[in-house]
Amino acid sequence: MTNAPRPTTRFRGRAWLFGPDISTDMLSPGQYVHDPVEIRLRHVLEAARPEFASQVRPGDIVVAGTNFGCGSSRESAPQHLKDLGVALVVADSFARIFSRNAIALGLPVLACSGVSTTVNDHEIVEVDVVEGQVTVGDGRALLHADRIPAQMLDVLGHGGIEPMLLALGRKKE
């Protein structure tokens, strides 16, 4: 797991603000699990903000309260955010499985206590995941976040686990 290319570590984008306890049931509702992706994407977070799925733009940043991604282990939850073009998720805190899954898919997640009460909806946010820094609204506020551990930066650097497996498969040939 070495020699990974360096992942993108700095982001600038428009924030979508959510409260605490956004569950994987909201991110990826159970009744659509076998529907085609286009249909599933339409229902992402509809229970929290019905307009999100249709209005989110590539490069946008999801900002949320505590315990983001709580609930089941479905990887479709971070995958859907990635498919909708969300650049990263910054939350006061994350549920364990969600943050592992997000990293495994190459979607950066940064825990930053207080972020959801500082950032306004649709405000521009700048994030440096290596330094663990969140700059809000062109410098209106500066927050310090947990740094992403080296092992996880390594996975992000590969673009997630799938490319790592591909490398493994090639090696075994």
Binding site: S73, R100, L105, I161, L165
Partner: peptide, 23 residues
């Protein structure tokens, strides 16, 4: 996610996603 259930037997169980399971 309810892989924690095996804690009933004294096993350490936790949920992971599909990519990590593949790995």
């Amino acid at each position: 996610s309810h892989t924690t259930t095996y804690g009933a037997l004294g096993a350490a169980g936790c949920g992971i996603g599909s990519s990590e399971m593949a790995y």
